[in-house]
Write a protein that binds this DNA or RNA. Structure first.
Lengths: 256, 256
DNA sequence: AGAGTGTACCGTACATTGTACGGCTCAGGT
DNA sequence: ACCTGAGCCGTACAATGTACGGTACACTCT
């Protein structure tokens, strides 16, 4: 590719795009929204790498370069896709309404974020740091902070706690997505793959001595029929993190 | 690109490469090790996307296609780079020797992993699930499990606890790396960038109402001079996670 | 010494990418 | 009826991973 990275070169332009309505169609019916939706559909099934401007254009029965009338480039398009993907995260229900107080709310947040990341695994490949200012993302941040307000935490602590939970969900979901993608690409399940490399591995590892790795790795493999079980990692980590946060919150309300 | 993804098509071949010694040079002095080291050096400074087979070959004063005599493709090369990057993680010291028991050991593990990820940010872009069987990675797993053995945890719990810590470190380091890369690509610090989009943002957000997001976001921004502070996120999250693990471990030894 | 052989090396070619550039075409205003 | 501007798009280019086929060198065997 000859052009730039995936970073959007003009942040102000991106912002305007993000917050605009984009409902007026051109003379062939092309809309920013339609482009974004087509791109998301393709990315869902093919991945972000496989997503090309040509593919999006073909799906919309439009010339490739017509997309550039509505969207400055691929970077901005992925920004738009990202915000859009979080569009109806909390459309039906809110964390703050869940039973179980802040703990139940954070579990709800984790679950919903997990669902989005599972439905749109390409999100992991979007550079997100400065994109976090689209309307849906901002709204998401607002809603997710609510159950943490009024617990005695400082503002910075509220953000840290939320970030911790979201980072955990993202990391775990990413590992799961990678696992799935590898299985799909290779056409082999973890078990089949393991069986295929097993002889080579034993050959190669004779003379080495990794007793703990062997014991624990085997235990994990037998327990989950795989080297990792994302669902288990999610719940184990979440429980541990919430236990830790409970201590922080308790210490704060004790002072109060 | 015309070829396949970044996934290695032949796992057994990859394994043999990973565990081989690769010290015998060809008639132009080319070695697998030299190729991997050149690739790592380039990736460190330019990133994994910018790393191309041509660049590696140029750096080694060799024709591009000569690399393919030693390495099947780019996918396998990144696998090798990955394992190599973790080569001397614990060369001088081991987690189990640290003061502070399992807690001190996990803090040491987190710190060392953080250092590697900071030195080699491209690691975040390597698909890792099935690569985790190189000699250095296996050794790393063995060493990192040691401080968790004998605490009353099951084998699966030991793996889960370690995975939790490593996932946290990785997620946080990734966010930090993304932040740095965005700054470098755009040539703008977070503050400059914020100043640049600020007017557009206020224009666009008039009429919306996000009191919490505004309050907390502002507090975070003022506290860290940025939207996120990776070092703080690392230590906050680690403390919380270790507090949570302490409860699990205490409950196990109470039963014992 | 000479011949033969396998392997290291590499030049060229191709499909695929994002997008710059410049031309075409049509809707709406005058 | 004509002009203008914007939507649309065909072509071109630089860069990518690597398949393919050729070249040249270091051996072994006679």
């Amino acid at each position: 590719m000859a052009g730039r990275k995936a970073a959007a070169p003009d942040p102000a332009r991106s912002l305007a795009l993000l917050w605009g309505s984009h409902t007026k169609p051109g003379r062939s019916g092309l809309t920013v929204r339609a482009i974004v939706e087509a791109a998301i559909a393709l990315a869902d099934s093919e991945g972000l790498d496989a997503l090309s401007m040509r593919m999006v254009a073909d799906r919309l029965k439009v010339g490739t370069m017509s997309l550039y009338t509505h969207v400055p480039g691929k970077g901005e398009l992925t920004d738009l896709m990202f915000d859009q993907a979080y569009g109806d995260l909390y459309a039906d229900d809110e964390p703050v309404n869940q039973p179980g107080g802040w703990r139940g709310a954070l579990e709800f947040i984790a679950r919903r974020n997990w669902d989005v990341l599972t439905a749109h695994p390409w999100i992991h490949d979007v550079p997100t740091v400065r994109t976090a200012l689209g309307p849906n993302i901002t709204r998401k941040y607002e809603i997710e902070l609510r159950p943490l307000d009024g617990l005695g935490l400082t503002d910075v602590e509220m953000d840290s706690a939320l970030t911790l939970v979201l980072t955990h969900v993202q990391g775990t979901a990413r590992a799961g997505a990678e696992q799935l993608r590898t299985q799909r690409d290779s056409g082999l399940t973890d078990q089949e793959w393991w069986r295929q490399i097993s002889p080579t591995l034993t050959t190669v590892m004779t003379g080495t001595n990794f007793p703990l790795a062997g014991r624990v790795g085997t235990a994990v493999g037998e327990h989950f029929q795989s080297a990792l079980d994302p669902a288990h990692a999610l719940s184990f980590g979440l429980t541990t993190i919430l236990d830790g946060l409970a201590q922080l919150i308790a210490s704060r309300s004790a002072v109060e």
